[in-house]
Simulated assay, not measured.
Amino acid sequence: MTRVHVAQRTGLSKPTVNSIVADLRASGLVTELGSVSGTPGRSAALYRIEPTARVVIGVDLGGTNVRAGVADLLGSIRAERQIETAGPVGTLVPRLADLCRRIVQEADLGWESVAAIAIGTPGVPDPVTGLMDLAANIPELAEVNLRQELGRTLGVDIMLDNDVNMAIMGERWRGLAQTSRDSVFIAIGTGIGMGIFAGGGMQRGHAGAAGEIGYLPLGADPFDPAVQRSGPVEEVVSLRGIMATYDRLRHEYGQPELETVADIFAAAERGEPAALKCVDSTARCLALVVGAVHAVLDPERVILGGGIGSNRLLLNHLRAHLARLARRPPVVDISALGSRAALVGAIAVALEEAKSRICGSSRA
């Protein structure tokens, strides 16, 4: 648009707009595109944001894989790559640094354009020390100050948050929660966790552990010391919990041994009784969790994700139990972003941080 249009849209004076546009052009953030013709008087110059003047990196650090993407200022993802998480704890930071540099290079961008990096991780990052807690899927994270060490290696400030918090931000940006003021994301896979967007913002709690629903006193015996590390809900609603439930039921029903949760869901789809009972039992426990969340937070929408949470049979059984459990059950859907929710959320968070830094430096 022209500077006149900017002044009209923002309510700023023309001299102020001229000064701001000049600053943005000098920093490379805005470029002149051409001019408006066919109108009376002098031709007015057209300006646009230069998308790759600054870029951001989002990282989803999972228990099995690490996925990273680089996006421009308009939110277009320019490159994306995935590597395995497994490896000696001492190699985690170098491998993450290499991954970030590689995707920037693959996008044909310069490292100097990277304005912000956001990482979603299992567990809860300490806001003061940067160390991770409750990261049962990647216990070595407790030994690494990821924010400090990776930031020092790459020369860019690192933002850390729980991966499920990143997932709800992804849904807020480009998923099912774009129009919801209050919504939650429940991820079910190796473990279970929840991201909360309520009252117009992320809710992390006093120590950053809001949404650790694996520790709700439901499912297994919450007083049993054996379940207190991962939590009583996670003992039931998780990869390990579902496998244990099926193993118990298959003996009761005389069914064969199955190797994966995917096999159990497939057997349930075929109507095999032990598998079907296993899925229904899992959905029943999950319904209690969603019912508790609904009673406390009253979210407009509950979004399910993760390798297990994205299963439609589980969703159908969950909805059936919720209809019996709650007078007005919340809307429950499967994530629109699939396995990429946390990555998309990390990019969204990095993008907001980059814009904040850009505006801050412009004001300065």
Rank of each mutant, 00 (worst) to 15 (best):
227 V>R: 02
326 A>I: 11
291 G>V: 11
302 V>A: 08
301 R>G: 10
220 A>S: 11
286 L>S: 08
327 R>A: 14
290 V>P: 04
307 G>H: 03
267 A>M: 01
241 G>D: 06
296 V>S: 10
347 I>P: 03
335 S>G: 08
290 V>T: 05
332 V>W: 01
322 L>R: 00
264 I>S: 01
234 E>Q: 14
351 L>K: 03
323 A>V: 07
330 P>E: 13
278 C>V: 11
216 L>F: 01
215 Y>L: 10
232 P>L: 07
331 V>F: 00
309 G>D: 12
312 R>K: 07
252 E>K: 06
261 V>I: 06
319 R>D: 06
227 V>F: 08
290 V>Y: 00
266 A>H: 00
318 L>K: 04
292 A>V: 13
306 G>V: 09
221 D>H: 05
292 A>S: 14
294 H>V: 10
320 A>I: 01
276 L>N: 11
341 A>I: 06
242 I>M: 14
329 P>E: 12
282 T>S: 02
345 G>C: 06
325 L>G: 01
213 I>N: 10
248 R>D: 14
258 L>I: 04
253 Y>D: 13
287 A>E: 10
229 R>W: 04
274 A>I: 05
243 M>C: 08
239 L>E: 15
271 G>D: 09
290 V>Q: 05
285 C>M: 11
231 G>D: 12
291 G>E: 12
329 P>V: 09
273 P>C: 13
241 G>A: 05
344 V>S: 07
211 G>N: 15
222 P>F: 00
314 L>N: 09
217 P>A: 15
300 E>Q: 09
217 P>I: 14
223 F>G: 15
264 I>K: 02
344 V>W: 01
250 R>M: 09
214 G>V: 13
271 G>Y: 02
297 L>D: 13
342 A>I: 07
261 V>M: 09
263 D>K: 03
234 E>A: 14
348 A>G: 03
220 A>I: 08
340 R>M: 09
318 L>H: 04
342 A>K: 03
334 I>Y: 02
334 I>P: 03
319 R>S: 04
228 Q>I: 11
342 A>Y: 02
316 N>W: 01
350 A>Y: 04
288 L>M: 13
322 L>W: 01
268 A>D: 13
215 Y>N: 11
229 R>C: 08
255 Q>G: 14
265 F>R: 02
269 E>Y: 01
336 A>L: 12
266 A>V: 06
227 V>K: 04
268 A>W: 04
247 D>E: 12
231 G>H: 01
261 V>F: 00
283 A>H: 00
311 N>F: 01
220 A>F: 04
232 P>W: 00
332 V>R: 06
323 A>K: 05
349 V>T: 15
233 V>N: 05
304 L>M: 10
305 G>R: 08
231 G>T: 09
226 A>R: 09
320 A>M: 03
284 R>A: 15
342 A>W: 00
258 L>D: 06
321 H>T: 06
341 A>V: 02
316 N>A: 14
266 A>D: 10
318 L>D: 08
317 H>G: 11
255 Q>A: 13
315 L>P: 02
275 A>E: 07
219 G>R: 10
223 F>I: 14
234 E>W: 02
338 G>S: 00
305 G>K: 06
236 V>K: 01
301 R>D: 10
331 V>D: 15
230 S>R: 13
347 I>S: 02
266 A>Q: 04
225 P>I: 13
302 V>Y: 05
349 V>G: 05
226 A>Q: 12
